[in-house]
Amino acid sequence: MLDIASQKPPKGRWSTPPFDPRFPNQNQTRNCYQNFLDYHRCVKNMDRRGQSTQPCEYFFRVFHSLCPMSWVQRWTEQIRAGTFAGKI
């Protein structure tokens, strides 16, 4: 009999993000965008508090799994330029 631990990927390694009930549809564009925003909000809040940003790694891994890199690069450039439409 297989135990559950042997079925899980090694810690820190997973190919796709887990199911998020907020985004049940096949199109994961909103999920990508929301996790990008959540990551940057998390980093901003943790930096403001003077704490480690390690808990934000989850959002980073999810949006890097879901989002095309061209989107991430464009959004990052927009954040640096101060023209990003999302509220961080």
Rank of each mutant, 00 (worst) to 15 (best):
W71T: 03
R22A: 01
F36E: 03
N27V: 04
R30M: 07
S6V: 10
W71S: 08
M46V: 02
S65T: 15
C67N: 08
P10H: 09
A85T: 13
E57N: 03
E57H: 01
A81Y: 02
A5N: 14
F36M: 06
R48L: 04
R61D: 06
W14D: 10
S15R: 08
F63C: 01
R22N: 11
Q51F: 13
C67E: 07
F63P: 00
W14S: 15
F59S: 02
N45V: 01
T53R: 09
Q78E: 14
D38T: 04
F63H: 15
C42W: 00
C42G: 05
R30A: 03
I88E: 00
D3I: 05
Y58N: 13
C32F: 06
W71K: 05
I4N: 08
N45Q: 06
N27I: 01
G12T: 01
K87Q: 14
Q7S: 08
D3H: 05
F19N: 04
K87A: 11
R22H: 05
D20Q: 07
S52H: 07
Q54F: 07
N35T: 10
W14G: 07
F84N: 11
F23E: 01
Q54H: 11
A81L: 12
Q54D: 15
D3G: 09
R22S: 01
P18E: 10
Q26V: 09
M46P: 00
A85C: 02
